[in-house]
């Protein structure tokens, strides 16, 4: 019977066979898994350089078997630019949280997108600063309580959340910009196909690509993993709609 058994699920080859340090129900691990699967499927292991952020995924480089560098907080797009320009045939992606990308590193991501050079950003929007204990992020929703908006975010005191995907899609540089969600199997599958397009936009030399992933942070949201997924669907998606905001010709 053994010869009839079919592998339907296995550890991606580019995964460094390590146990992650992420909290239960955290979707950082899901995003990692998708990257590893795509690196395998698209045969990118030998030419990939991951640029990791400061945030909960700061140790991301430990979990993959490709080359990686660890950037300063928010500076991953600049570092990726320096890496890409020296070896344009390599596949270079940044992995960044919302504090990293949309707050301290906003200038770097906007200009990387505007330059339009083929690098890819995987952007984890979990609505707070996970690593430092759940402070308010540029993506924190109005009314959302965090450790630095204890009564809930108000526009008067804290301004409005930033929709990064829509904002960057206004620029001429990007080839592909999408927002996906990691809350359910069907959305995870869609997320993977968006990431594949983003990777392709780079490999085919078309331009900058970014996939914003609606993610969970059960620990700081003070919710169970299941409640966190529900919150993404009920509260986060209405403000941060899923979809492709920019797809230039040739991206597939």
């Amino acid at each position: 019977m053994a010869e009839q058994m079919k592998v339907i699920y296995e550890r991606p080859k580019s995964w460094a066979n390590k146990v992650t340090h992420y909290c239960p129900g955290c979707t950082h691990g899901v995003a990692h898994r998708l990257i590893a699967e795509l690196v395998d499927e698209m045969d990118l292991l030998d030419k990939t350089i991951g640029v990791w952020p400061v945030g909960c995924s700061v140790l991301g480089y430990d979990y993959f078997d490709f080359d990686s560098v660890e950037a300063a907080h928010g500076r991953a797009p600049a570092m990726a630019t320096g890496i890409k320009v020296t070896n344009p045939d390599n596949f270079v992606f940044t992995y960044q949280g919302d504090g990293d990308l949309a707050s301290i590193g906003m200038a770097e991501i906007v200009h990387a997108a505007a330059r339009g050079w083929p690098i890819t950003a995987i952007f984890i929007n979990n609505g707070n600063y996970g690593m430092t204990g759940g402070q308010m992020a540029p993506t924190t929703l109005l009314g959302q309580k965090t450790t630095t908006s204890p009564l809930g975010r108000t526009p008067q005191d804290n301004g409005f959340p930033i929709r990064v995907a829509e904002m960057l899609a206004q620029l001429d540089g990007p080839a592909y910009i999408a927002r996906v969600s990691l809350d359910s199997p069907v959305n995870i599958r869609k997320a993977k196909s968006a990431m594949r397009k983003a990777f392709n936009a780079q490999i085919r030399g078309i331009g900058f690509s970014l996939v914003e992933c609606l993610s969970t942070c059960p620990t700081n949201w003070r919710l169970t993993p299941v409640e966190s997924m529900e919150r993404v669907r009920k509260e986060v998606m209405p403000y941060f709609p899923l979809g492709e905001f920019k797809v230039v010709e040739g991206v597939l």
Partner: peptide, 26 residues
């Protein structure tokens, strides 16, 4: 070679960092 005008000195030094990681003279 390549010249890149960065968006700030914060970015230039981090671009330098990236290129330096690739082992080139930068």
């Amino acid at each position: 070679g390549r010249f890149v005008q960065a968006e700030s000195e914060v970015a230039s030094i981090n671009m330098v960092y990236g290129a330096a990681c690739a082992g080139v003279r930068v």
